[in-house]
Design a protein around this nucleic acid. Structure first.
Lengths: 182, 182
DNA sequence: GAGTTCGCTCAACCTCTGTTGAGTGAAGAG
DNA sequence: CTCTTCACTCAACAGAGGTTGAGCGAACTC
């Protein structure tokens, strides 16, 4: 047991490949990223990537699994706003979002994720239009994520993180409030 | 002049190719769509596509040009909401949005478009946080467009078009109103 | 009617990329 | 020390897809 056994080393390599994959998928999307490119980043032969994950699709599947952020009740909107606040998104999230418009599996994955978000939030709201307001909230957060982290709209340069966070919070609160959105 | 001259026929074919391209780019994205596929839809040989548009990138560029919806003052948010209301998006818009996360040119095009939207809307709003509210509005509309037309969230099945439109309008009004978003 | 001009098709090229099968050399078992 | 196992590399295949150049036939010119 000289530090790292064979299996341990193998597992470590697998991890390195996975991280390289997340990086590449996040930066280039599923189609743009290549097995060769991922292998290069991981410092490894392309065929080894296949031996570890079987196929590009399977690797993508593994790379894109978000940490199950569970159904920790329903006040997860704040958690989401946190995402908006962060200067950077975790690679697996970026990878998933990046490909969600072009790769069916990513679309479906994102859809399931957001559907659940809407459901959770709906349950935590009052009023008959609860679902509608939850939908607006979740859609809005997705919109902010995209315009900030992927399109990088100019307007984000003009606003401080605090102002943005405060505004987003207020806006969400207005949707969560008692007054109907009408 | 037997109805269609040579040039006219050529122009017509070019148009047919362009429409096929929009369709394919809208459905598959830039990388997913193929010259061969576009040619097949247009009922034409792949090489003809090249002769007309020079390259796949150039064809995409042509296919993705949104009708210059000008700077018709600033009340264009309603116009955007109209987009939200419509059951379907025009192919060139779908094509642009579909590829905006994976194709640099599409990203840049979308960025320029939304930047201008934010600027216009900012000018039409009062208050020192006008830009922030404009940003939230534009991001929110983009989010709705994506969740409705691309991700097809379940929640959209549960709400009527009218309710959605009314809510979106009310929500935009709340951002456009005098009370700061805080 | 003869010659010329294109709009369009055919066949091929070439690169990129996912994927595979045969090794190779070092780590572990006996 | 010997044999086996296995993480990893090398070289190659196969298919897809963008792109190109030659050619054909109908439309236009004179």
């Amino acid at each position: 047991m000289a530090g790292t056994s064979r299996d341990a080393k193998r597992a470590l390599t697998a991890q390195r490949i996975l991280e390289a994959a997340r990086q590449e998928f996040a930066a280039q999307g599923f189609e743009g990223a290549t097995i060769r490119g991922i292998a290069r980043v991981a410092g490894v032969d392309p065929s080894l990537v296949m031996q570890h994950y079987g196929s590009k699709a399977a690797l993508f599947h593994s790379a894109v699994q978000l940490p199950v952020d569970d159904d920790k009740v329903a006040s997860e909107h704040l958690l989401e706003v946190l995402t908006v606040r962060l200067g950077e998104l975790p690679p697996e999230t970026r990878a998933l979002v990046r490909s969600m418009l072009t790769v069916p599996e990513a679309t479906e994955s994102m859809r399931a994720y957001l559907d659940e978000r809407v459901d959770n939030l709906t349950r935590s709201l009052d009023g008959d239009d609860a679902q509608l307001r939850a939908l607006l909230t979740v859609s809005g957060i997705l919109g902010l994520t995209i315009t900030q982290h992927f399109l990088k709209l100019n307007a984000f340069d003009g606003v401080s993180q605090e102002a943005l966070l405060r505004a987003a919070r207020g806006w969400i609160a207005s949707l969560a409030g008692d007054e109907p959105v009408t």
